[in-house]
C-alpha cells in the first residue's frame, strides 16, 4: 500500500517537474500544426466553403492534382510551409470569438494524409490574415483554440502558400503550367495558322531528321528552323482560367492563331484569343487599346489558359523570320 502511495506521489512530483521544465506553456495538442515528417505525406485534401475541393496525391514520387501533374514549386512551398509553420501568437481572448466565427465561415479545411489513406493524420483550417498581415488565423480540427500562424523568417500570411485564392481553392492553381514539352525531333508536323493574315501561315514537316518548311518564303535558314523548334521544348502558360465565367464565349469566338502539333501520333492544337486589358492602356495616338498587349487567352483541349506574348511572340513569328537575309 505504502509503495502504491509512494509511486503516486512520485508520479505527481515528476509530472509537476516536467510541467515546470516545459519550454512551451501552450498544450501541444492545441498548437500541433506542423508536419515534421513531410516525406511521409501521401495525400493532401483542401475544401472551401463554396464546395470547391482539391486533392493532391503522391504517386511514384510525383504529385498530382486530380489526374493532372501538380506544379513542383507549389508543392515544395506547401510542404515546406506545412513542415515549418509555427505559432506566431495565440489569438487574444478579446478577439477569439470573432476569429472563431470568421474561421467557421471563411476558412479552408486542410487534411493531411500519410500512410493510412482513409484517416487524415492532421486536419486544420486556414483562415484570413491577421491584422498585421504577418500571419494567418488557423485552428486545428476538434480544438477550440485559434492561433495566428506564420512561417518564421518570412514576412507575410500563409494563404498564398496553401494556394488559397481569397477564400477559394481550385485545381487550376495547382496544375503544372507546361503547355508544350516536346523534345527535339519528336515533332512530326507543326502548323502555325494566323487567322487574320493567312499569308503568314506556315508549317514545318519532319523529313529525314530535318524540317521541311512550307510557306510563302522560298529560301529558309535551316539553323533558324532548328532553333525555332527548341521553343516547343518548354513552353508555359501563366495560368489556367477554367473558372472564368466567359470561358464558353471566348471559345466560341474566332481564334487569332492556331498552333497544331503532331508528335508520336498525337495531335495537339492550341488556339489563341484576344483578351481585353485589365486597365486602360493607350496607344501611340492616345486612343485606348482594345486588347491587352501583354496577354492572350488560349484554348488547349478543354482548358482556358492565360498566355503571354513574351512567350508566344517568338512562336508566332511570320515566315519572314526563317527567310535567308539578302
Amino acid at each position: 500500500m505504502k509503495k502504491i502511495s509512494t509511486i503516486i506521489l512520485l508520479l505527481v512530483a515528476i509530472t509537476t517537474i516536467i510541467y515546470q521544465q516545459s519550454k512551451n506553456t501552450i498544450k501541444k495538442e492545441l498548437r500541433d500544426f506542423a508536419v515534421a515528417e513531410i516525406d511521409k505525406v501521401q495525400k493532401i485534401f483542401f475544401a472551401d466553403r463554396f464546395n470547391n475541393e482539391v486533392l493532391l496525391t503522391k504517386q511514384h514520387g510525383k504529385w498530382y492534382v486530380g489526374e493532372h501533374l501538380a506544379r513542383e514549386n507549389a508543392i515544395e512551398l506547401l510542404l515546406n510551409t506545412m513542415q515549418k509553420i509555427e505559432v506566431k501568437n495565440p489569438v487574444a481572448e478579446s478577439m477569439h470569438n470573432s476569429v472563431i466565427k470568421s474561421l467557421a465561415t471563411n476558412a479552408v479545411k486542410v487534411e493531411v494524409f500519410t500512410h493510412d489513406e482513409n484517416t487524415p493524420f492532421k486536419t486544420y483550417y486556414v483562415g484570413r490574415e491577421s491584422s498585421d498581415h504577418l500571419g494567418s488565423y488557423m485552428i486545428l480540427e476538434n480544438s477550440n483554440k485559434a492561433f495566428v500562424m506564420h512561417l518564421p523568417g518570412s514576412n507575410g500570411f500563409l494563404a498564398p502558400k496553401y494556394n488559397i485564392d481569397g477564400e477559394k481553392v481550385h485545381v487550376d492553381l495547382w496544375r503544372e503550367r507546361a503547355i508544350f514539352q516536346f523534345k527535339t525531333n519528336t515533332i512530326d508536323t507543326l502548323q502555325i495558322t494566323h487567322h487574320q493574315s493567312e499569308e503568314r501561315n506556315f508549317s514545318l514537316i519532319k523529313t529525314n531528321e530535318s524540317y521541311h518548311y512550307q510557306g510563302e518564303v522560298k529560301d529558309v535558314q535551316t539553323e533558324v528552323i532548328n532553333t525555332y523548334m527548341q521553343l516547343f521544348e518548354n513552353t508555359y502558360c501563366e495560368g489556367f482560367m477554367n473558372t472564368y465565367e466567359k470561358k464558353d464565349s471566348i471559345f466560341a469566338s474566332t481564334p487569332l492563331h492556331s498552333i497544331s502539333i503532331s508528335a508520336n501520333g498525337i495531335n495537339t492544337t492550341l488556339h489563341t484569343y484576344n483578351k481585353k486589358p485589365r486597365q486602360l492602356h493607350l496607344d501611340a495616338e492616345s486612343n485606348p487599346r482594345k486588347w491587352d498587349i501583354d496577354r492572350m487567352y488560349a484554348k488547349l483541349g478543354d482548358d482556358l489558359l492565360l498566355i503571354q506574348f513574351r512567350t508566344f511572340n517568338p512562336i508566332l513569328y511570320g515566315p519572314t523570320h526563317f527567310a535567308v537575309e539578302k
Partner: peptide, 13 residues
C-alpha cells in the same frame, strides 16, 4: 494564468 511562453531556438533550421 494569462501569461504563456515559448522558448525558441532560432538556429534550429
Amino acid at each position: 494564468s494569462f501569461l504563456e511562453y515559448e522558448f525558441i531556438n532560432p538556429s534550429e533550421n
